[in-house]
């Protein structure tokens, strides 16, 4: 499903990634690990065409992403849910509206939005807080909203960049459990983290990009 072959990324003479090779199969859960600055975020960003490799190829569902036209990038991103360390929620919109945004950009409106958003908010146990604004929620709750927004489009892949970076251990466990539950339903997950405890909790394949 996802294939990185001989991927290099450099900014001038500074190489972030050197000859990165790995594949991810459909329905798999993998951890991408490495110290800060190793290129974990860059690796994930390449999958949503936010970064492009200096050399090598990144393929998603058999399509080489470097060859993608700018107008096709939004449609690629709708197939991939992205969860950020800093949540990236819109502070002037409620929990419900933030999650609904994921569907609205795809052209889904009305009753479908109400049904899908309600379902996903129940799954992340935030339905009762649907009318609250993100800033009134705890860090863990905000991250659950971000996960709900990423998953409401029913993406084929969920990318999570240090999703528990700002959270305590107990909350991190809840977040991992939620992500795992969606993985069990068939969503492929790539989670970037340097947290060894989280990797232990996840019990999944680990790609250490320090070696690349």
């Amino acid at each position: 499903m996802i294939e990185f072959s001989h991927v290099y990324k450099n900014y001038d003479k500074n190489y972030i990634l050197r000859d990165l090779n790995f594949t991810v199969n459909k329905g798999e859960f993998i951890f991408i690990t490495g110290p800060s600055g190793a290129g974990k975020t860059t690796t994930l960003k390449m999958l949503i065409a936010l970064e492009s490799p200096s050399h090598g190829a990144v393929k998603f569902l058999g399509t080489e992403l470097q060859g993608l036209k700018p107008r096709d990038i939004p449609f690629l991103r709708r197939k991939i849910g992205f969860v950020f360390q800093d949540f990236k929620l819109l502070p002037n919109r409620t929990v419900f509206q933030n999650v609904a945004l994921g569907l609205e950009v795809s052209g889904i409106f009305g009753d479908v939005i109400i049904k899908n958003v309600s379902e996903i908010l129940k799954a992340v146990e935030l339905y009762t807080k649907k009318d609250e604004f993100p800033l009134s929620l705890s860090g863990g709750e905000q991250q659950r909203v971000a996960i709900a927004r990423a998953l409401v489009q029913n993406p084929q892949v969920l990318l999570a960049d240090e999703p528990t970076g700002n959270l305590d251990e107990e909350t991190s466990r809840i977040i991992i459990d939620i992500i795992k539950s969606f993985n069990n339903k068939g969503t492929t997950v790539m989670l970037a983290t340097h947290d060894k405890n989280l990797i232990k909790m996840g019990r999944a394949r680990v790609i250490d990009i320090t070696k690349s």
Binding site: I48, P74, G102, V105, S106, A150, Q153
Partner: peptide, 15 residues
């Protein structure tokens, strides 16, 4: 910031 988020979740330029 909001535009950046919208783009990341798949909003087109027209949107």
């Amino acid at each position: 910031g909001e535009i950046e988020i919208l783009r990341l979740i798949g909003a087109t330029n027209n949107y």
